[in-house]
Write a protein that binds this DNA or RNA. Structure first.
Lengths: 213, 213, 213, 213
DNA sequence: CATGAATGAGGGTTCATTCAT
DNA sequence: GATGAATGAACCCTCATTCAT
């Protein structure tokens, strides 16, 4: 009536925080390999489970991805938003964001990598786009808040709003890319960005070399 | 296999035509969906062939990707390098590159998209990395050339070489990203970049709004 | 496991309640979807348990099926056999069976559906066949009893025994099918059957239309 | 670049009529095991292919089923409709259908089995229902045609139309069931049916035993 | 009794690739 | 050059079942 091969849960096994281990593993793998190339089986194996067990926590690959995405977005947003909120002017807000993202990247680089990686995956796969429609523009929102501040403090002309937002987006995107490419490059690009922003926004031009550790 | 047809292609040669159609189709699909999600069958179908027939032109998916990549790199490099070569100073070279990339993007957006898309795919897949090792750093090379010029003209301090290169890389990468995301965003980010560079490099600050069409 | 609770079940006993709920749910699902398509998890969920909990009541899916099957057979047999026993002649016994099956169907249609559904499932799966070998021919037995009576009362020739049994089986099977397909169709088919049997067995031919409600 | 294990079509293999072999195998397996229990892999193996190769002929399991279903329906309908068309009265048409179905069953029993088996599978699975909506009522249509004839020839009262159709359906369904259960039972049930119909429709009652081979 | 977590064994399907024609 | 037919390797997901609590 029952097969000779053992089916069912094996005896002697109980490990907590499996859920978090799954998320951590998935985040790293999604970041490194992207959505398509990351198999559920591999995530499960790296987290110490069978793929079937993983389905106990997330009902589908897409759901797993969404969960990871949400977690990353939240962590990113919490840090950057807090940083931006501590500053009062446009200039300070931008620089605070740079600082915060640098700290986050140093603290847990995978969050940043995943975020960069996710951008292309989401753009490529309509299913992900659909599943993530809500809250996927936090990035733009953040930029808008900062630029709005700039306009209201008089640092920026209202006319320049769109262009500044676009430039800021491009710069932050580019910094994210360098973070994914090479740690040293990222550090230098950050230094350069601070320098340039300082020059443009405060009118003083420093020496780049002094800024890089 | 495609090399012999490239120059002096006889008019009405169906084979050369097919070869180019394959490359065009593949470029677009690789750009839109990435490497893993693009199937040989789909490329073939869109190009009007069977997948088996495609193997007459490219011996494997990876080879096809490499071919597309090489073609794009060459086209990109030709344009940007020519543009940079016409200018004499760092400042002018950078602005020339911006102009040229904007023209290229307007002319054939897919080349730009593919380039952005390829970055992540290559980073993700070791096989691609291995196959593309040669010539994959043209990007860095170009930046280096330009920054070198800046140092030799005295526009930049030698100490700042690395930081400026990193900043330039980040900015150009970010602009590439915006190009892939949204045409208008890209246009504005370009305008903003010109403005900022002008301000930093020439010390004059214009109004952003005037630059956007 | 369920046997002990069956008679004299103490009022308010949750366990016996659960057991019956499981059987009811399973009967309906097995009837509607068949054996393979009915998952233990779904039965459990509909009965308000976990699938693991269901295993406290039935040690395997097959056992659950067997339990449902036995229950249905018993209920069916009890009704039909009682009905048949009240009549003395072949003709009356057959008509009594038709009446009784109609009442049963009206009372709890799922029992009939399950019985029809079970026939194919058992025929399809050797495991079920093996597990149900005992008592799975109650159907034939019932027919035989009735036909035997016909022979002994002189209504049927002994030579015709086999053919009449086969015809009766076919007709009852067919009626069961119509019951599963459509209620109205079943009602009409029953009416037609009564008419035809009356004509053949008693030599009087009525109007069909008068028999259908 | 290519794996060590051989991928692709193996050398030295070319067999025609694969398509028909697939249909034959699938018909038998679907008939014997039903939809859910029949795996694509098994069909393929029995037909001498890999499951992947089967997808070259039918894009999904459901499509394969639909193909088999259509083929069976067509064969069934062709035979029964031709038989019915040769007769002019209701009585003769019904008996002709019985004869034809008996011949078909003797000729290729699997068609009949599949048809009986398909009924429950289609009823159970909404997907099949949806896919087969067109032409799934050929059965009813055939009955209607025959009964219509009976009314127009005066053999049946118009009032009895519905009841006769229902009875005929039930009887034919039941005969189909016996065919699936046991060959001898089917033969006897057919004989009994002829007898009963003759008695009811022509008013003469024969001896059943003479009709069975 | 009941549950949550876990497993092995598939099941349908896709895909890059290859061979014969 | 081009095509249809074929393959092995995966991939996502489901399911009956079991164990610890």
């Amino acid at each position: 009536m029952t097969d000779s091969k053992r089916r069912g849960r094996p005896p002697g096994d109980a490990s907590a925080d499996t859920a978090q281990r799954i998320l951590d593993t998935a985040r790293r793998l999604f970041a490194e390999r992207g959505y398509a190339e990351t198999t559920i089986k591999l995530v499960a194996a790296r987290a110490g489970l069978t793929s079937a067990a993983l389905y106990h926590y997330h009902p589908s690959k897409l759901d797993l991805y969404v969960a990871v995405h949400a977690e990353c977005r939240q962590r990113f947003l919490a840090v950057l938003d807090a940083a931006q909120a501590t500053a009062l002017t446009f200039t300070d807000k931008v620089l605070a964001i740079l600082d915060a993202s640098e700290r986050l990247q140093a603290d847990d680089p995978i969050v940043g990598w995943f975020t960069a990686s996710a951008r292309v995956d989401v753009a490529r796969r309509p299913e992900l786009q659909a599943a993530l429609r809500r809250g996927s523009d936090w990035w733009t929102q953040l930029c808008r808040t900062v630029v709005d501040t700039g306009v209201s403090t008089g640092e920026l002309r209202a006319d320049d709003h769109a262009v500044v937002m676009a430039f800021l987006s491009a710069l932050l995107l580019g910094l994210g890319e360098t973070a994914a490419l090479d740690e040293r490059l990222h550090a230098r690009a950050l230094a350069g960005s601070r320098l340039v922003l300082d020059a443009v926004l405060r009118g003083r031009l420093g020496r780049a070399a002094e800024l890089v550790p």
